[in-house]
Design a protein around this nucleic acid. Structure first.
Length: 206
DNA sequence: CCGCGGGCGTCTAATCACTG
DNA sequence: CAGTGATTAGACGCCCGCGG
C-alpha cells in the first residue's frame, strides 16, 4: 500500500524522504498518515528492488539531501500495482489511495474498478439495513441507532458520488477524451509537466 | 569563527495484524 | 501460539544557515 503511494508520488516528480512524507500527509493524510519509520524502510526496500533510485541534483550545492526518483522498472511496477488492485480496490482503506492515482489508469479499468467499489458499498448498505432492523427489534439505544443511520447515509452518499464518477467515465468511453471530466474535475495540484499520463490500458495494449 | 536552532534523515522499541 | 512484517511514536544525530 505504502509502496504504491511512494511510487505514485515519485512518478509525479523526484523528492526527498521528508518531502515525500509531507506530500503523503497533504494529499492522502485525510485518510492515512505515514511515519518516517515506515517510509524510509519502504524506500530502502524499493531501492534494493531497483524501482526507485537515489541521486543528488546538480543544482543541490548546499545541503546534502537524498533525493529519490522512480526508475523505468518502478514506473512499470507502479502501473502493475495500481491495476492489480482490481481484487482489493473496493476495500475501505485501499480505495482512496488508488483513486488518488486513478488518472494513470485507462477508462475501461477505471469503470471496472468503480463498478466493483459500488457493488461493495451496495452490499454494505444491505447489510446495514438488516443490522438496523435487528437493532430496532433489539431495542438498541438512540445513540447506537443514530450511529448506524449515519453510517448508512454516508454509504448512500458515497454510492451517489461513485455514480457521478461512473457517469463521467462512461461519457469518456462513449465520446472520447473530449467528454466531460469526472465531477469534480480535480486536477492534481502538482502535475509534473505536460506529459499525458501513460495508462495501464495503454500499457496492456502495447 | 563559533554556537545555536531547526530541517532532515535514521534508528529503535513497541504494537498490531496476519499467517502457518 | 510463535514468527514475521508493517507501522508507529519518539529519540537521536548530522548538517546547514544565521546571528553574534
Amino acid at each position: 500500500m505504502l509502496e504504491l503511494a511512494i511510487l505514485g508520488l515519485l512518478k509525479e516528480r523526484a523528492m526527498h524522504g521528508y518531502e515525500l512524507r509531507k506530500q503523503l500527509s497533504q494529499k492522502l493524510g485525510f485518510f492515512w498518515t505515514v511515519s518516517f519509520g515506515s517510509l524510509y524502510p519502504t524506500l530502502k526496500k524499493l531501492e534494493r528492488r531497483g524501482v526507485v533510485e537515489k541521486f543528488f541534483p546538480p543544482e543541490q550545492t548546499t545541503r546534502r539531501k537524498q533525493v529519490y526518483r522512480i526508475t523505468p522498472a518502478g514506473e512499470a511496477e507502479f502501473l502493475e500495482l495500481l491495476a492489480e488492485g482490481a481484487h482489493s480496490v473496493w476495500e475501505e482503506d485501499k480505495f482512496p489511495l488508488r483513486l488518488a492515482f486513478f488518472r494513470y489508469l485507462g477508462p475501461e479499468t477505471r469503470v471496472r474498478l468503480l463498478e466493483r467499489r459500488k457493488a461493495y458499498l451496495e452490499d454494505k448498505l444491505d447489510e446495514g439495513r438488516r443490522s438496523l432492523g435487528w437493532a430496532h427489534r433489539g431495542r438498541a439505544d438512540s445513540y447506537t441507532l443514530s450511529l448506524m443511520r449515519h453510517g448508512m447515509e454516508t454509504t448512500q452518499h458515497d454510492i451517489a458520488w461513485l455514480d457521478k464518477l461512473l457517469h463521467a467515465e462512461r461519457a469518456v468511453l462513449r465520446d472520447g477524451p473530449r467528454a466531460s471530466a469526472p465531477d469534480p474535475p480535480e486536477r492534481p495540484a502538482a502535475e509534473p509537466d505536460d506529459r499525458q499520463p501513460r495508462t495501464t490500458d495503454e500499457v496492456r495494449s502495447t
